[in-house]
Design a binder for these strands. Structure first.
Lengths: 224, 224
DNA sequence: CCGAATCCGCAGTGATACTG
DNA sequence: CAGTATCACTGCGGATTCGG
């Protein structure tokens, strides 16, 4: 049994061998938003050593989770993207993120929020039941971060940057606090946000991104 | 920023700080099946150093994921169990397990299967849609492992040991191969299993534990 | 037997500097 | 922009030992 091998024929053990190393799932998180370059990833993963990033990228490529691509015309170079298999990790990443979000507490000194973490937090918070038969587009501005969420026929497209379609409502987070999704929802509930567009979409936003509580229809453990 | 701190105000980052260390999620997997003692955990986690297990148990307790309990009468001592917060990890563990299962390939030399990994694999493979309006109980025997699955009103109770209710069907895996869930399903499809009980429940078993394919209703990434 | 603590050697990690 | 190189440090794996 090699060092990073658990020696068990088990899906969880295999998953942890492939993406269980430090930083790996945060790289997957950022790439789940969109393909990114090496230096983009460095920016979004505060404190990761450059050597570690390049090691992880090689391991993830080897493991079939990501792939290197040659970037198209305007700014050439290399971009990293999830493979189809890698995209299959998104449900697991969102599930872990939901659990962690419930245990977040208050921001710690020095904590940051990135456009990618904010986008994935929105995807994790998305409530498909509340979004049935809904068509809406929001654009969120918080500090220097811009993200968007577009709901079409009950399914969500969330990403960084301005909305690809004209947003129904633009929400600007005006507090000096960390521009976390939690703080944004709080501010929205209290009306402490600047709005531009169809204001009734504010309430829809809050409900669309309040996750249904039990999080899963999975079986209950027979805990004594 | 401490060593195991990612410095991001993000649910995924927080989750990885709490359960991202080596072995931690495998401990959670085993405790999700039922509370276990220190030595039970050692048995189920092949190759974990004793010092590491005790360190992880302390960290997980500190993080509010597990708790120590004094075991009841017959065999006293200490048992470890998931807290309610810890039980909230199950959807994430199952999602990661599903992804890993899809990338398992063939068993490697020396791989083992434990009752706990088999139980969690069954929970991960469970298809609620196929189990609507179903009531059934199976007992699985494979090598020296016994596990059970009881479906009542569309929801699953899966655990180790004999079925708590009289099983409709007992399935015995007779091959010399590793008694993995995958091999069991294969064998069941080919009729290479010994049956005892109502044989028509074999087909029901296969369909109930074939997961629906896309695995999640979550949003698609806007991959270029 | 259960439930660890201790010790050692090495591999993975973090910080900084440097290169094509 | 996209990484390597170096080096100190800490976490991990393996074995042994120790107290209830």
């Amino acid at each position: 049994m090699g060092r990073r091998n658990f020696g068990q024929y088990c899906g969880l053990a295999r998953a942890l061998e492939l993406v269980g190393e430090r930083w790996a799932l945060l790289i997957v998180r950022d790439l789940a938003v969109r393909p990114r370059r090496y230096t983009d990833l460095l920016d979004g993963l505060r404190g990761i050593p450059t050597s570690m990033l390049s090691t992880r990228l090689k391991e993830l490529e080897q493991g079939g989770v990501i792939e290197r691509r040659v970037a198209p015309a305007p700014r050439r170079g290399i971009v990293y993207a999830l493979t189809p298999d890698g995209r299959g990790l998104e449900p697991a990443v969102l599930a872990l993120g939901r659990w962690g979000t419930s245990r977040l507490g208050d921001p710690r000194q020095g904590d940051i929020v990135t456009p990618e973490s904010l986008t994935m937090t929105m995807r994790a918070a998305f409530n498909p039941d509340a979004a049935r038969r809904l068509n809406a587009a929001w654009e969120i501005h918080a500090a220097d971060i811009v993200v968007h969420a577009v709901v079409t026929g009950g399914s969500l497209q969330a990403g960084t940057g301005p909305s690809p379609v004209g947003p129904d409502l633009t929400i600007t987070f005006v507090s000096d606090d960390l521009p976390s999704f939690r703080a944004l929802i709080q501010a929205a509930k209290c009306g402490l946000v600047k709005l531009s567009g169809r204001q009734k979409f504010l309430n829809t936003f809050v409900h669309t991104f309040t996750p249904r509580s039990p999080a899963s229809p999975a079986s209950e453990p027979d805990q004594a």
